[in-house]
């Protein structure tokens, strides 16, 4: 675009500016990695995190929460997205907008009801108590994405399925979902990322040490090890690694997914 008529001089300037801007962004990443290899040494630090702390336990708990959240969000999203995109019914616009209002809710604004409900039902330290409110705050966004995508599926294909005797549910499972792979991937990546990275709900709800989430690792470390910075950084690397690797492998998908709601 702007660079179509670039000269050697403008390329040089661009290279220089880009490098200067990127250095402060790269510096903390490099620092975290290098520091995590310091102290008693890389092997000792990482081995200590994995074997001497409940790190793997926390990771497993987060995996359970993330998978549960992805499943609940995906089921609600595709089912409702299908109805909003491809069916006519009374109150459609009202119901759609009623769900979209949830987009602006800061989860923290319902801390009191969540806290009291969890207390009444005795659900402290139960992953379901994290999965349900987390999913409720994610569905408005994923539904908006899915509905906009599903509207684009040609009606002729659904009509053909109906003529062949497919039920509406059969059409959803055998036709709509297979045709929605791109948006499904975005919904799954988005929900997984949000669940894995969330701190607020686990902090509020998962109080038993055995039940904690991976984002609570830094707090656990600070309380157990004080300021053993190399080990803390090793735990941060391990906490970020699955997501960063997934991002590097699926770069376009992550960038599209994370900015999808913003590109209109």
């Amino acid at each position: 675009m702007i660079g179509t008529r670039s000269t050697r001089r403008s390329r040089l300037i661009a290279q220089l500016v880009a490098t200067v801007v990127v250095i402060p962004f790269a510096f903390p990443l490099v620092t975290i990695l290098v520091t995590s290899f310091g102290g008693e040494g890389a092997v000792a630090n990482y081995a200590a995190v994995i074997s001497e702390t409940p790190f793997l336990r926390f990771a497993l708990n987060s995996l359970v929460i993330a998978v549960g959240t992805v499943a609940l969000v995906y089921a609600c999203t595709m089912s409702a997205g299908y109805a909003f995109a491809k069916m006519q019914f009374r109150g459609k616009s009202l119901l759609f907008n009623a769900i979209l209002v949830g987009l602006i809710l800061p989860t923290l604004a319902i801390i009191v009801p969540i806290f009291i409900t969890v207390q009444r039902l005795g659900l402290f330290s139960n992953p379901i108590a994290v999965i349900v409110p987390l999913s409720a705050t994610l569905v408005p966004f994923t539904l908006l994405l899915a509905r906009n995508y599903l509207v684009g599926i040609p009606d002729e294909i659904l009509e053909a399925a109906r003529v062949d005797g497919a039920t509406s549910f059969g059409t959803l499972i055998r036709i709509v979902i297979p045709l929605s792979a791109p948006i499904s991937a975005v919904v799954v990546v988005w929900a997984f990322l949000q669940a894995w990275n969330d701190l607020f709900l686990p902090l509020l709800i998962l109080q038993d040490e055995d039940a904690r989430a991976i984002t609570q690792v830094p707090l656990y470390f600070t309380s157990q090890y004080g300021s053993d910075v190399p080990k803390i950084f090793a735990s941060l690397v391990l906490l970020s690694l699955p997501i960063v690797i997934a991002y590097l492998a699926l770069q376009k998908l992550f960038e599209r997914g994370l900015t999808a709601g913003a590109v209109k």
Binding site: V22, F25, L29, L193, W196, N197, L199, I214, T215, Q216, P218, L236, L239, S240, I243, V244, Y247, Q251, F254, E255, L258
Partner: peptide
């Protein structure tokens, strides 16, 4: 520049 966006704010 995008790696920080996918990292947990907690980390």
């Amino acid at each position: 520049m995008f790696v920080p966006v996918v990292m947990a704010p907690a980390a």
